[in-house]
Computed example of a mutant assay.
Amino acid sequence: MTRTVRVRRPSPWQDGPVTIVPISDDSIRLGQFLKLAGLADSGADARALLEAGEVRVNGEPDSRRGRQLRKGDVVEVDDPRGSNSAAVG
């Protein structure tokens, strides 16, 4: 279950609502999280977004599909529809 909430913006790179996506383990790979959060439709889409430099983790660009995310990490994706954000919950 996902939910959208307004969170306090401690950093200038966070500027819109963030969807909190709960995970059952302590960590999740970035490629998997992109799909789980609905930021990418498939693994191929996730790979394309990462290769194009459209993904930021905690405000920093990242292109590693296998990067381990932990609770509290915020992932932001720029695509033609605009910027979307999701946080690991």
Rank of each mutant, 00 (worst) to 15 (best):
1 M>H: 12
3 R>F: 14
3 R>G: 09
3 R>H: 13
4 T>M: 08
4 T>F: 09
6 R>W: 05
6 R>T: 06
6 R>D: 15
7 V>P: 01
7 V>Y: 05
7 V>L: 14
8 R>C: 13
10 P>H: 12
11 S>H: 15
11 S>G: 09
11 S>A: 15
11 S>K: 10
12 P>T: 13
15 D>I: 03
15 D>N: 07
16 G>Q: 11
17 P>D: 15
18 V>K: 00
18 V>M: 04
20 I>Y: 10
20 I>H: 08
21 V>M: 01
22 P>M: 11
23 I>T: 02
25 D>V: 06
25 D>L: 12
26 D>T: 10
27 S>C: 13
27 S>L: 11
28 I>T: 02
29 R>W: 11
30 L>K: 00
30 L>M: 07
31 G>S: 10
31 G>I: 01
32 Q>T: 08
32 Q>C: 09
33 F>S: 00
34 L>C: 05
34 L>E: 00
34 L>R: 00
34 L>H: 02
35 K>W: 13
35 K>G: 06
35 K>E: 03
35 K>Q: 14
36 L>M: 12
36 L>G: 03
36 L>S: 05
36 L>D: 00
38 G>H: 08
38 G>E: 02
39 L>R: 01
40 A>F: 05
40 A>I: 01
40 A>K: 01
40 A>H: 04
40 A>M: 05
42 S>Q: 07
43 G>P: 13
44 A>E: 05
45 D>V: 05
46 A>E: 01
46 A>H: 04
47 R>N: 11
48 A>Y: 05
50 L>W: 00
50 L>P: 03
51 E>H: 06
52 A>T: 04
52 A>L: 09
52 A>S: 11
52 A>N: 08
52 A>F: 04
55 V>I: 03
55 V>R: 00
55 V>W: 00
56 R>I: 05
56 R>L: 12
56 R>V: 03
56 R>Y: 11
56 R>F: 09
57 V>P: 04
57 V>Q: 02
57 V>E: 06
58 N>A: 12
58 N>P: 02
58 N>M: 09
59 G>Q: 07
59 G>C: 10
59 G>H: 08
59 G>A: 13
60 E>K: 03
60 E>C: 09
60 E>F: 13
61 P>V: 04
62 D>N: 13
62 D>K: 01
63 S>C: 14
65 R>P: 15
65 R>C: 13
65 R>T: 08
66 G>N: 11
66 G>T: 08
66 G>R: 07
67 R>P: 11
67 R>M: 13
67 R>L: 14
68 Q>K: 12
69 L>F: 13
70 R>N: 15
70 R>I: 15
71 K>Y: 09
72 G>Q: 07
72 G>M: 10
73 D>G: 02
73 D>R: 01
73 D>A: 04
74 V>S: 02
75 V>W: 01
77 V>W: 00
78 D>A: 06
79 D>V: 02
79 D>T: 05
79 D>N: 13
80 P>N: 06
80 P>E: 02
80 P>V: 02
80 P>Q: 06
80 P>H: 11
80 P>K: 12
81 R>K: 15
81 R>L: 12
81 R>I: 08
82 G>M: 07
82 G>C: 10
82 G>K: 12
83 S>R: 15
83 S>G: 14
84 N>G: 15
84 N>S: 15
85 S>Y: 15
85 S>K: 03
87 A>M: 14
